[in-house]
Design a protein around this nucleic acid. Structure first.
Lengths: 216, 216
DNA sequence: AAAGCACCGTACCGTACGTTACGGTTCGGT
DNA sequence: ACCGAACCGTAACGTACGGTACGGTGCTTT
């Protein structure tokens, strides 16, 4: 079980183990039933190895979620002196990145298993996904918002609330529609346009040059 | 299978069948494993009857989703001459209603099974839920927005886009967090405050005039 | 070269669950 | 009173799948 714990930490994954986890991801993305036998077949490994490395089916799922999370983790935002243009570009980038993540087949598949799991309460996949998705982007975006406030570009009392507004403006109904099976095809242009719109709207609400909407 | 089709239409559900579907809902809400045996036990009916009425497990799920949907369907918005105050109240009501729906245990449970189902592609529960959730509220809210534009209270080109903005501002990260297992407790006051904030923000983006401020 | 190890492939076991079958009971119609 | 339909409770069947055991193979170490 020590192996399991190392993997649960989301690191020290050997290349071979990474191949196995990629096999899991490929099965998930295909919507195929995720049986241990199917994983072993797809990864060309034995079930015995799966159990040795990951403990049980649940551990395999956890490892997969963290494997994908560790890969998605983008570089952190670098605190900097901001001007309005740099802020706008950063916000657009955040929005575009988030939109492309939540519409990716991998993200959709992983969120599906995590949500199903959260229902049965077996494991804590939901918490892991939440931690690496919604909360991770929050922790990355809030420093930007605070720097922008520091620079007098934005106006808000609560960074968390401002972030949640940005999150809502960016995500809208996209994620729930994707999760519920609607096939949304967002081209690069669609995403760029939406990201620009979101950013404009966010500026309208929290930009210092505009009249800020104050929180109740 | 004719029985199944009648039930798929979401109507002609006898009281006894409704009791069975309520049993399904209660099991779902509890997060219990939804086996046919468990349903039969909970509903005090025989499995044979379940299969006779609903065809198979999938049909039972479909019937349950539509059963709940038909019950949630609120009264339609009545087109009316709007003033700013009536508009604000209507929007706040929409937002508050939506927030309380998506945080209700029933909605969360139902969305979970629909999302899990959408992954395996077995049935079309996802489409049904989407139709009765996100799209239903869209069709109910858009007439209000258009009346408001007619009355010169709102400015927008595309009612769909305006609605999606409202949807995003209202929902934010609430639904995904709930689906992923975070237990959000929103009191009446929380919801009312959020609904007011959302409405203020929406007015800031699309309002043609100054938002009338609620007293207190 | 020999031994040990990590792993693959596969057969196997136990259980859970969807589905079917059947005997017993209630009840409305004749 | 009798019949049949509808339904309940439960037993039984088949299968899918999580988990385990085991023989075979190639690679590393000594």
């Amino acid at each position: 079980m020590n192996t399991v714990e190392r993997i649960e930490a989301g690191e020290d994954v050997t290349t071979r183990q990474g191949e196995v986890l990629d096999a899991v991801l490929s099965l998930l993305v295909e919507g195929a039933a995720l049986t241990m036998s199917a994983v072993a077949r797809r990864a060309s490994c034995s079930k015995e190895t799966l159990y040795k490395w990951f403990g049980d089916r649940d551990g395999l799922l956890r490892a997969t979620v963290q494997w994908q999370a560790s890969r998605v983790r983008a570089g952190n935002y670098e605190r900097q002196k901001l001007d309005a243009t740099a802020l706008r570009e950063s916000l657009e980038q955040f929005a575009a990145n988030w939109l492309s993540v939540i519409t990716s087949r991998t993200s959709i598949a992983l969120n599906r298993v995590a949500i199903a799991d959260a229902g049965s309460g077996k494991s804590n996949l939901g918490a892991i996904v939440l931690e690496n998705g919604r909360f991770a982007i929050g922790e990355r975006l809030k420093p930007l918002l605070e720097d922008a406030r520091e620079a007098g570009l934005l106006h808000f009392d609560d960074a968390e609330e401002a972030f949640r507004t940005f999150f809502g403006l960016a995500g809208r109904d996209v994620q729930i529609r994707a999760l519920l099976g609607e096939t949304l095809v967002l081209s690069k242009q669609d995403i760029a346009r939406d990201a620009a719109l979101v950013t404009r709207q966010f500026f309208a609400l929290y930009g210092a040059s505009q009249l800020p909407v104050k929180a109740g």
